[in-house]
Simulated assay, not measured.
Amino acid sequence: MSNEPEVKRWTAKRKAELVKDVIKGKTTAKEAARTYDLTPSEIERWVDDALGGMENALKANPKDVTEQYEKKIDDLHAAYGEAMLQIKFLKKLNRHLDQNDE
């Protein structure tokens, strides 16, 4: 057996607990970074991410993050489809105009 410390994964649950402690003032990003061998900027990014998601969580009808991304993807697919139709139309128009020039 080695004397190396046990490697623990930083799951969302563990990150959330640490972020709560930072927000509540129980620890600072610097202190936590030293304790857990992380960088202060990494912990600060987790805090920023948590604070950014707070607005959605506090809405009357919060949307699931997956639902938000799926809507964005659907919107992008629709925009892509429309752009492809426009390109196809313009190519046909260009071919038609080239035929009339001959």
Rank of each mutant, 00 (worst) to 15 (best):
17 E>I: 05
6 E>I: 07
51 L>I: 06
14 R>P: 08
62 P>L: 02
16 A>K: 13
23 I>Q: 10
32 A>W: 03
33 A>C: 12
17 E>P: 01
44 E>M: 03
84 M>R: 14
72 K>A: 05
88 K>G: 06
48 D>L: 05
6 E>L: 07
71 K>I: 09
46 W>Y: 12
72 K>T: 02
83 A>R: 03
51 L>F: 02
89 F>S: 07
50 A>V: 02
61 N>R: 08
94 N>T: 13
44 E>W: 02
43 I>P: 01
13 K>C: 02
29 A>C: 07
42 E>W: 08
94 N>C: 04
36 Y>C: 09
39 T>A: 15
94 N>G: 04
3 N>R: 09
38 L>W: 09
46 W>G: 00
76 L>S: 12
58 L>E: 15
90 L>E: 12
36 Y>Q: 12
82 E>T: 04
4 E>D: 13
26 K>T: 06
34 R>M: 05
81 G>S: 11
34 R>T: 08
79 A>P: 02
57 A>T: 04
80 Y>N: 07
30 K>D: 10
33 A>M: 08
37 D>S: 14
96 H>P: 01
99 Q>I: 09
89 F>G: 04
61 N>E: 13
13 K>G: 06
63 K>N: 11
11 T>A: 01
99 Q>M: 14
69 Y>G: 01
72 K>N: 09
88 K>W: 08
11 T>W: 03
41 S>D: 05
33 A>E: 09
75 D>P: 00
77 H>R: 12
35 T>I: 15
15 K>D: 03
75 D>S: 12
64 D>F: 04
67 E>L: 04
48 D>H: 06
53 G>V: 01
32 A>T: 08
90 L>P: 00
97 L>G: 00
74 D>R: 12
63 K>P: 03
87 I>V: 12
91 K>Q: 09
